[in-house]
Design a protein around this nucleic acid. Sequence first.
DNA 1: CATGATCTCCTTACGTCGTAAGCTTATGCT
DNA 2: AGCATAAGCTTACGACGTAAGGAGATCATG
Lengths: 224, 224
Amino acid sequence: MASTAKAAAPPRVRLNRDRVLHTAIALADTAGIDALTMRRLGEELGVEAMSLYNHVANKDDLLYGMIDRVYSEIDLPSDEEEWKTALRKRSISFRDALSRHPWATGLKDSGTQPGPSTLRHHDRVIGTLRNGGFSVALAAHAFSAVDSYIYGFAMQEKSLPFTTEAESAAMAQVFLANLPGDEYPYLAELTTQHVLQPGYRYADEFPFGLDLLLDALERRLAGP
Amino acid sequence: MASTAKAAAPPRVRLNRDRVLHTAIALADTAGIDALTMRRLGEELGVEAMSLYNHVANKDDLLYGMIDRVYSEIDLPSDEEEWKTALRKRSISFRDALSRHPWATGLKDSGTQPGPSTLRHHDRVIGTLRNGGFSVALAAHAFSAVDSYIYGFAMQEKSLPFTTEAESAAMAQVFLANLPGDEYPYLAELTTQHVLQPGYRYADEFPFGLDLLLDALERRLAGP
DNA sequence: CATGATCTCCTTACGTCGTAAGCTTATGCT
DNA sequence: AGCATAAGCTTACGACGTAAGGAGATCATG
């Protein structure tokens, strides 16, 4: 009887940092970063908000942990491939990760507390460049250029109010209808002749800029 | 005496949207975006928080207005210069603006409600490319690539916990001391041999990536 | 100039947020 | 078995954005 009572006792799953981070990311992905409140996250985990503080120092710590998890999802550059293809693959993987977790782009002070996955990622990217023949200075320049582009692209993609082709078309129509026809002629032209073309998705613009950068880097590496 | 009373009456300056936006930007610049609350902004203007709502629909509207103001600070590309130099100048002016107003980089949904200055800016940039011989599609690609880079660079710059050379050096020292020596060898190398070199400032990395992109675009324009 | 409408600004209040303090209960160690 | 430690809960506080509605100033119209 005592044992029955015990058996009926809550089959509660203990909380831990991993479960907290995992659920936080899932919540931010599906409901948006604004929905990620301590109370809501607690609810999602069947726990009161304040209990989360046993596994996370505060909300910023939670966010830092989430960001490091996103970095851990990025495929590291292979060191068996040429630097250019290795870097290209990891760049696409990087953008994919930011596209799966749009909230990770533009979190305040995201770079101030880099976690282990973040550091490892950076280290491997720089290593790929160095082993590809880049000087320390050129590797630093290249790293800054490529990652700025990826980050900025993800940011723009996120801030766009559409993602699918149909949404794009709808938005573009509204946009065109609302803007003073001849005041922004080039913008209107680009909208009708590019954005409104069948099959357009902003995400498809990504490889263009990436290859622009990688080709240019290759040239710098070979040239003077 | 009635007149004396009248003369002593509050020499109150009327509020208007322009004053609200101007003061909001100044506040965000000096005290950070977190300090920009409706109450604090009201205080700054000698007014109660709720009075602001006569000139601004809500806080998002305030932020949209601020962002459009930042765009209005960017030098538009001259149409008397070659596309490349015109775009280069405007890109540097763009980054300068984002550097003066770091809060403007990464505000949520910044692109969903473009204001008139934003639209004019985009229109002129696209126009510069079109008149420089870019096809509509190539202009769209180029615009996306360059502005993603600028945006991303500003983002990284903001998220870095240092700006001056002295701060960089101090941070780098702490960073090196704290990270597991041989776990991130390339990162360590880059830090000591690049970041810790005298005269280093991350902002100086900007022209490298920009010229990489512009040179590459020039080549695409000429080539196939 | 008078009078009514409209706009500006203020007061009060509500629900939500992150999280400090201190309690109770569960776990782990000796 | 008994106790230290950790995990989770309750309650509460101050700050936030902003809804509702009142008071005073300003403006439009006769």
